[in-house]
Structures are given as C-alpha cells and as structure tokens.
Nucleic acid binder design. Sequence first.
DNA 1: TTCTTTTGTTAACTAAGTTTACTATAACCT
DNA 2: AGGTTATAGTAAACTTAGTTAACAAAAGAA
Lengths: 412, 412
Amino acid sequence: MLEPKLVHHASNTISRGQRPGDVRRVNRATALELLRERPQGRAELARAMGLSKPALGGLITDLTLEGLVLEHPPTAIARGRHPAPLQVNAKRFSVLGVHLASYGLEVGLYDALGVQQDVLYAPSHVGQGATRVLAQVIETSRALMARAKKLKIGQVIALTIATPGPLDSARGVVLGPPKFPDLKGMNLKLKLEQALGLPVKLERDVNAAATGHLRQTKAGSFVYILMTGPGIGASVIINRAVYRGTHGFAGEFGHVSLDPNGLACPCGNRGCLERYASSEAIEQHYKKRTRKTLPIDEIASRTRDGDPHGLAVFDAAGDAIGLAAVTLVNLFDPSQLVLASSGKNFTDLLTPSLKRQLTKRAYPYLNLGAQLEIENVTLEHPVAPGAAECVLEAIYQGEITIPKLKTEVVMG
Amino acid sequence: MLEPKLVHHASNTISRGQRPGDVRRVNRATALELLRERPQGRAELARAMGLSKPALGGLITDLTLEGLVLEHPPTAIARGRHPAPLQVNAKRFSVLGVHLASYGLEVGLYDALGVQQDVLYAPSHVGQGATRVLAQVIETSRALMARAKKLKIGQVIALTIATPGPLDSARGVVLGPPKFPDLKGMNLKLKLEQALGLPVKLERDVNAAATGHLRQTKAGSFVYILMTGPGIGASVIINRAVYRGTHGFAGEFGHVSLDPNGLACPCGNRGCLERYASSEAIEQHYKKRTRKTLPIDEIASRTRDGDPHGLAVFDAAGDAIGLAAVTLVNLFDPSQLVLASSGKNFTDLLTPSLKRQLTKRAYPYLNLGAQLEIENVTLEHPVAPGAAECVLEAIYQGEITIPKLKTEVVMG
DNA sequence: TTCTTTTGTTAACTAAGTTTACTATAACCT
DNA sequence: AGGTTATAGTAAACTTAGTTAACAAAAGAA
C-alpha cells in the first residue's frame, strides 16, 4: 500500500500582526462583495460597511480607476439627492468554470458578475488515460476562449477546475478518487496553467457547487450535499467560507457509516451511506424491485407520477441520508441543509423521509432536527458556475491579480 | 413537547468594514498571546508578529502602563545587546474557573497566566433543586474569593462556569441536559453576575477543557473528546478557536449513532455511542461479564494488571469510539484526536482498538486514519483550568475589561 | 421659490503602522 | 584595552487609511 505523505494545509495560523494595509484589503473585498450582491450608492454602502462616507468614497475612487466598479447616473428612489448606483463592472474581465466529472466535461464562460455567457459540453474521455483527459480539458477551454474573443466581454483571466476529491487544492494535485483514477497524482493546476497561460485553481466539485450556492443565499453556515452518480459529497460552509479540514478532505458525507457490518465500500469502510442512497444505489434498488434498468431521472419522473416502487426506493434513500444527516447535525449544528444533484433534481423526493428521520432523531429534546431548514437546489448543473464563483472570489479578494487596464490614468 | 425558539448565535457575519482601531486590538491580543506562551524581548516579538520594532515598542509601552506586561532586567543569551524579557504580569488580576458537574463542584483560583493558586471541591447538590445548586456555586466561589484576598495575587475580576450542555452560551442560559435537568432554563450567567458582581461566561464543559488544552499544544485544528460519567462530548477546534455551530450545539459526539436500530437513548435517537462506550457503559459491561460493580478507575487499574474482562470491555468501547471517530474524521478531517476523561485517565486503554478501527476504516485509500495523531490527556481535572482559560482568553482579547490600576499614570 | 432631506466631497485630524537613523549593550578578536 | 560586529531598543519623519465636521449638490415637498 502506498503511503502518501499528507501535508497539512489548513491555514497555518501564523500569529501575525496586522497592518493598516490589511484594513484596506479587507474593506476593498467587502465593498466588492456587497456591490456584487446589489448595486447601490456610496452612502448606503458606507452604512452597510460601518464606514464613514469619505472613507468609502476613497475606496470607490480606487476601484473605479481600476475599472472594477462603474458609476451610473442617479435614479429616482426617494426624497433628497439621488444616489449614483455603483456596480461591479461585469465586462472588466471574465473567467472559466470547468467541471470535470467522470461522466463528462463542462466548461463555462462567466463574466465578472458570474453570469454565464457561453458553455461547451464534451463527452467523457475518462478511462482513456490521463493524457487524453488533460488534452480534452485544454482543447475545450481553448475553444471557449476563442469564442469568448468574439463576444463583447472582458478578457478571460483565470479559471477554476472542479473535480471529485480527494484533492490537494493548495498544490493543485489530484489524489484520487478510487473510482476515477486516471488523473491520480497529476498536478492538474500546473499543467493547465502552463497550457493555458492563466492562473488556475483546483477545487472539489462539491465545494465549487457550494461556493456557487453562497451567491444565492444569505445563510452564513450550512452544509451543501451533492449527489453525483456513485457519490454523495458534502461541503461544510462556516461563516460563508468552505471548511476544508486539515488536509482538505473534510465533508466526506458519503462515507458516514450507517452499519459497521454493512456492505463493503471501496473506501475501505463498511455500510457507507453512498452504498445505500447515491443515485446509482437508487437505480440498483429500483432494478431489484422491478427488474427494470432505468436512469435516475426516469425513476424520479415515474415516482412523481405515483410509481409505488419509486416511492419506496426514494423513501429508503431519504431515510438513509436522514440517518447520516443526524450525525452531521450532531457534530456540526448547521443552520441549513442544502440538497443538490447533478442532472435533473430529484432531491425533493428524498426530503419527506429525510425530514422525518431528522425530526425523530436529531436532538429531539431541543427540536433541533425539526427546525433545521432543508433546501432543494433545482439547478441542473451547479458545479461549473460554482467553479467560476470560486475564481471570482479569489479575484475579488485580491488573491489573483487583475491585469491593469491599458487606458491607465496617469497623474500629470 | 416544549418547542423552544432556538436562536442563531454563530457570528452573524455582518460584512463590516475594518478600521485602524481593529488593527490595534488584534495586535494587542496577539502580543499578549505570544508573551503568554513564552517571555521574550521586543525585537523577537516584533519578528514573530511581523511588525516593525517601533510599532511593537509602542504596543508594549501601552501594555506596560496598563500593568499587563512586566519588563525584567536583561539576561545574557547571545552576542549583542541582551533583550529585556517581557512577560505577562501574572499578578495583575486573577480569575475563577468553575466546573459544575453532575457528580460535584470544583472551583479553582487562577492567576493571570492561568496557573492554579487555590481550589475548592464540594460534593454535589444536584438533585436537590436549582436554588440549592446555585447557592452552592455562589457560596463556594465566595469562599474562594475570600481566601484569595489573603494570597498575594491580583483581584479576581471574572469567571467562567463550565457545565454539561446544551447551553445558550451567549445569553448564559442552561438548556439541559436530559440527565441533569435541575438548572434547565436558568440564566446562570445573570444570576452569578448579580450574586458575585463579576462578569461571568457560561461554557460547555468539553469546550472549556479543550480551550485549556489549547495552551498545551501548538496544533491549530483538532477534536477534543471528553468522557464524563454518562456522556461523551467533543469540542471541535478550528484554527485555535472552538467551533460552536449555529446554535452552539456542535460536537455532540456521544450521539453519533452506531446502529439505527440499537439501544434507545434519552436523546431520542438509537444506538448512540454513549450507550456503548461512556464510562458508565463500560462499568455496566464489566458488571455484566463479572457480576462485579466497580468504578471505572478500579476497572482500569485491574485492566492494566491484565484482567481479561477489563481488556475485553475497554477494547469493545475503543472499537465503538473508533467507529464514531471514523465518521468524525470523514466529516472534519482533524489533525489530531485528543482523548480526556474526568478522574483518573483511562483513555490509553481505548486507543489500541480505536486506532485499529481508524486505520482500517478512515480513508484507508489515503492512509488518513493511520496518520491521525491520538493524544491522551492525563490531567485528572481538565475542566476547571480550562474554564479559567476561557475567561483569560476573553480578557486578553479585550472582551472583558480589566479594572484600571489605582496607581494610574497621569500626564502632566 | 424656499425648505428639507439625502448624497457625495473637501479639509483637517487621528490612529497606527513603516523606514531610516541613531543610541545602548554586549561579545569577540586582535 | 580598544576596535569590530552584532543585536536591542528608541526617536523622528513619513505613509496609509481611517474619522469628524462642514459644505456643496440634487431633488422632492411646501
């Protein structure tokens, strides 16, 4: 058995001092985040941030000079002088969001606000070797970048590639997974950066999807659960940031064991949730009951039409996820559970039994399970836009630098 | 069934702007933390914090004027001018750490460095009603404060009371637990503040113990597991801070379910870890095997002498904790697992089987379980000093204000 | 037209850093 | 003994990025 030397990544907690520059960096990022949520005037933004109007004014002047923020003519709202709405310049630059899944590849082009402008899908070459897969990713990305030039949109400046874990996000190396071993050990980040000439971030598919969800919600802490074919992954969001754990492996929800003597799982454990409640497991259970091999979408659609076998298998899967979720709630105490699936969403079929288990078993003494909010994500492709959101976040936080505008303002 | 309205506490993530004052607050706290770890000179501290020497000098001048930091005559170390060692003034003030357990009460007196100066134990009055328990806590604390006056030590300025959860730490209200219902609904914080005239913090016993452990370790993220009589609680430490979850209920490790159809637990779930592996469960299992009713300490001691029944029951308990820990590792990916028990430590008897389960079942693909570090805490009373550490942290971070010195320096 | 309200800017001030230069020690080496 | 070198701490001038107070600009209301 190989024994990879695991590296600790979680913020090394260097007790460092702060300087005035840190203040500016934080305020800059905060201002951009708030403006991305909703365009607004200087005064309103200053209030939202708890800063004085002059301080915020200066910040905006900087951002405007960099071309990141645009000012529009005032619009009538209320009494008094009308605010000049500031908004993030959607065309200042653009990014790619890449979703490399075992079943296929999706590359999307997104403007600076994260709105999709173009997208390309490609059938999977997984199983044909790492070189082939890598080439496919590079080709598709280049194709999209070529098409981007014809659109009136800012230059592509960075990308995130999202793929199933485990990964070493910091170094950009793919470490697995057992079921998708082609890329194992490849430094995907480095190869892509060299081939495309752009900064690249590597991210777990679930974390990307959850990051995308952050744009849609105001909740600060939640658990995002993504069901993709054979797997069930979770992303734990704490204070609006992905919680990664020491090695970046946090959130392996699919391997919560429901039965220590249950079915063996390639992960090495037994009775893992994935074996009972993943899309593939649901398909298998349905087949066992009906002798029919149907894709999950079809099973879901029949279930909505009242198919009792469908109801039974979804109910059982919901029970299983519910049991695992009880553990999750006991350990994390999240405010919300977000359920997503790739492809047509079917998680709403899981929620009744899931909710039942939670109500019955998660701290009933305090009614915790009953009060837990459950949200179903209806997006069919949550990962690629989420990947885009990951780079955007890095860009707006100043981790990735934005190339300067040519029309630079020079002081006389 | 009562349905308490749960309040979300987890940092409300108000996207607030930063000001220069925030910089100072952070740097001040960081400097004190580093000095608490080890006395050192200005230059060294400046390097550790990444600040310039003059900046740090100013910070120290402030702290010295407040009496929080003392400067000692230089001591020979190396070549060049010798640094004047700065250290936190242990006698500037003192605090109380209170551990209210179902089996008894412990109140300790700690100096500003967290070193115990005095301690009082009292037999439990739990079961005799909330008023009685409260009176006992107040009496014992007053007694210790009276004794403190005779010691040459700073004034007692605050205290933390640690008790089993669930709690509403922010408001200071005890919400449970099922097994220790006397105080349910009482605002312990408020009552103690009124009776003792000091700021009071209420904290989960496990969180207090884990906070205490933070002083002993450099690890940034770990899970601290505390076995107390009937319960097994965990405190999740992320970036050297307790992770609380949305309502402050994170870390209910004892209620990870090992078997959805297992033994019923008062928590409402079935097959909870506590029912298999708590000290009380171990005692019961031992009794079942041997017909002897012995306290856990005695069983542990016999096990060390080779008692096969003891070996068997500890092994089984370690297996159970190991299974639950696999889930914990899958979800949190901690760097370390810290095991503690109140009373004579016996967790070393659990580690062999625990480690075995982890190695076998926690991400064997990446050898995660095998590489997870397990640490046994040998302290017999980890909670009270941990409680003291909680207040100290709050004080040094500026959340609790330190009364001014009488010998105030006044500018001419 | 004038009043009121709200936005955004200007000017002067404050907080808390940084850099550069200097002084104070102390060890080491002729 | 006295210069050299290394290190610690302080002083002065400067920089960054806030704050407050005052005011100009814009727009609806009286």
